[in-house]
Design a protein around this nucleic acid. Structure first.
Length: 599
RNA sequence: GCCGACGUAGCUCAAUUGGCAGAGCAAGCGCCUUGUAAGCGCUAGGUUAUGGGUUCGAGUCCCUUCGUCGGCUCCA
């Protein structure tokens, strides 16, 4: 959520409703474990709320209906939410047996003494909200009373582990996720969206459509792509490659492994050693599977000789499969894998060129996302804050941040800024796209890098005859082939647009008398660049239609004696629509039109 | 990696308190020669993820390892 949306949400009734419901959940849980429950925090989130607990036993799914029932009783009690205030000392007493609350109180008191010296009296105040028997340390706001909640719009969803304060060094708490809406209708709608998302799950559709598999013989996070899956990969990569070429990018190839020393020089080793596959050691050399391309591209830039400012910008692109040792619990279908094919580009330019290059990359990204029917997206511009982790060079940050802002302003794109989210080596812009179900995905990214080029001693000759260090822009459009394909499967629910469909048309002979004619048709269609199969099985036509329908093939071409005599095909769409008899030329022109329009 | 749940045929799922591992789809073979979402019959398919334990007896109970899922952490 952007700052602005976040702000609107925090002022909404829905936010107060969810916050209040979280308190009621906490009460219900505390009653379930009298005197034995430690409560942590419980905020509203995008589609509901959660609350974190430290409990004497693990919660199970069976506990949820029990808690839900008790919550309904509390709601029916029409208890008022009453705000009270006290000072830190009183707060400590009040929560003497709640260690997580005590920790929060300490944090609040520290923040206040550091920041609030001028308003000491104000800052000492801590607020509580009480309803029925439950009191929570809380800044609010809340509903007036529990009766405002419609218990039929409430549902507890799941139990999960979560680190206290989101820090993996801390103890793991139990988190209950729930959702609450103003009306039962909204709840049903939300649950429908969740169900629909399950149906579209790329892992499920991927195996149904026969696109990819995982095998325990290969290893976790290492997908195998079937012929159909590889057709998709190839189409996606060719498309981006063509667009990049048109935008002045040059494609390079830099292999799969490199010396470990390279990553020590680039700085990656220090930061990401744990996420790299273990080293391969030859007698006197140590190699690593490439976890990213930048050091290789920069090395190639260097090896290609002296560069003049006149040669810049130079844009290197590569579809390289990288290997990252993601921790086991972090793998998810195609969206998080250990072998990942990035559509990675590195643009070597002068500081003055940052703005133009950034603008060019924005154009390219918009064109590509549009082609994939992502029309609802925003840009998150991540800038530095006062944190010390950032590269110290105020002048470079100033130039880069203003270049990015100006380019974004000129582009007319919807963007929001987030301070403190920049990479340590420079500011970045990420494209956040919503799919048809309204879920937001981070897809494209453009990052300005001040540090690696100098770490790897890149130079160019400037106009002034002096050697300078180029700026590098890291840029990915679709991010990675695997992840983007996963997102696409869900976006299209497996029904790929014609230009992407692994099989674009399937010929369905009604009897085996029609087989020979089908084979002629297939040759003609293939000669016209279409991906076409024949269903030669001995099932009924209806069965073949159903099979093609389930596989979401865009066109079913039914061929019986009638069609054979009139030299035509009967065209059925996957929508179920019957277009009737078309000559083969008519059909080819329909598909050509559809492919060029991108549908 | 951490917390929790789960793992039965290629896929989707059955199997009473611990008591003979089963069905549909897919696959193979055969019959039917078919008109816009599943024609009929037969056959084959399993060390119930893995290794160990409890028991007269384990798919079922306990432990190990691996994997998957929901989250957390991380994501150059």
């Amino acid at each position: 959520m952007s700052d602005q949306t976040q702000e609107t949400y925090q002022n909404s009734r829905l936010y107060r409703l969810r916050h209040s419901t979280a308190h009621i959940l906490a009460q219900a849980v505390m009653e379930m474990f009298p005197g034995e429950s430690q409560i942590a925090i419980g905020p509203p989130i995008e589609n509901g709320f959660y609350y974190d607990f430290d409990l004497p036993r693990a919660l199970t799914l069976e506990d949820l209906p029990v808690l839900e029932k008790r919550m309904c009783e509390i709601i029916a009690g029409q208890h008022k939410f009453i705000r009270t205030e006290s000072n830190i000392e009183q707060a400590r007493k009040q929560f003497a047996h709640q260690k997580y609350k005590l920790e929060l109180i300490e944090t609040i008191s520290q923040t206040h003494t550091v920041e609030g010296t001028a308003e000491k009296n104000e800052s000492d105040v801590i607020s509580f909200y009480t309803h029925d028997t439950f009191t929570d340390l809380c800044r609010g706001p809340h509903l007036d009373h529990t009766g405002e909640i419609n218990p039929k719009a409430l549902k507890l969803l799941s139990v999960a582990g979560a680190y206290w304060r989101g820090d993996s060094n801390n103890i793991m708490l139990q988190r209950i996720y729930g959702t609450i809406w103003s009306t039962p209708k909204e709840l049903r709608q939300y649950l429908w969206t969740v169900e629909e998302a399950k149906k579209r799950d790329h892992r499920k559709l991927g195996s149904q459509l026969g696109l990819f598999h995982f095998s325990s013989d290969i290893g976790p996070g290492l997908p195998l792509f079937t012929p159909a899956g590889e057709t998709l990969r190839h189409l996606m990569e060719s498309y981006v490659r063509d667009v990049q070429t048109r935008y002045g990018y040059q494609h390079v190839w830099t292999g799969h492994i490199a010396k470990e020393d390279l990553y020590k020089k680039s700085g990656h080793y220090e930061n990401y050693r744990d996420a790299m596959f273990p080293a391969m050691t030859d007698e006197n050399m140590t190699f690593r599977l490439k976890p990213m391309n930048c050091p290789s591209h920069m090395t190639l830039f260097k090896e290609m000789g002296k560069h003049s400012y006149r040669d810049l910008p130079i844009r290197f692109a590569e579809f390289a499969t990288l290997y990252r040792y993601e921790k086991s619990g972090e793998l998810t279908g195609l969206t998080r894998v250990r072998s990942v094919t990035q559509d990675d580009c590195h643009i070597f330019c002068t500081p003055n060129q940052i703005q133009d290059e950034f603008a060019l990359a924005l154009d390219l990204i918009q064109e590509v996302l549009g082609r994939y029917r992502f029309t609802d997206y925003r840009v998150r511009l991540s800038l530095r804050d006062d944190d010390g982790k950032y590269v110290q060079d105020d002048e470079k940050w100033r130039i880069a941040q203003s270049a990015l802002k100006t380019a974004l302003d000129n582009s007319g794109l919807d963007y929001y800024t987030e301070a403190g989210e920049a990479a340590f080596y420079g500011p970045k812009a990420d494209f956040m796209a919503r799919d048809v179900l309204g879920r937001e995905w981070q897809l494209s990214t453009i990052q300005v890098d001040f540090i690696q080029p100098s770490k790897l001693s890149l130079t160019y000759h400037g106009e002034d005859g002096q050697e300078h260090t180029p700026v590098v822009l890291h840029r990915a459009v679709t991010g990675s082939t695997e992840r983007f394909l996963g997102v696409l499967i869900e976006q299209y629910a497996g029904a790929f647009p014609l230009w992407l469909a692994p099989v674009q048309a399937i010929l369905i002979p009604i009897t085996d008398r029609n087989l020979e004619y089908c084979q002629q048709l297939r040759t003609t269609l293939q000669d016209n660049g279409l991906r076409v199969n024949i269903d030669t099985g001995n099932e009924r036509m209806n069965s073949k239609i159903r099979k093609a329908q389930v596989q979401k093939v865009p066109f079913m071409l039914i061929v019986g004696d009638k069609e054979e005599q009139s030299k035509s095909v009967s065209v059925r769409l996957r929508s179920g629509k019957n277009m009737g008899a078309q000559t083969i030329d008519e059909f080819i022109s329909i598909t050509n039109q559809q492919i060029s329009s991108g549908d």
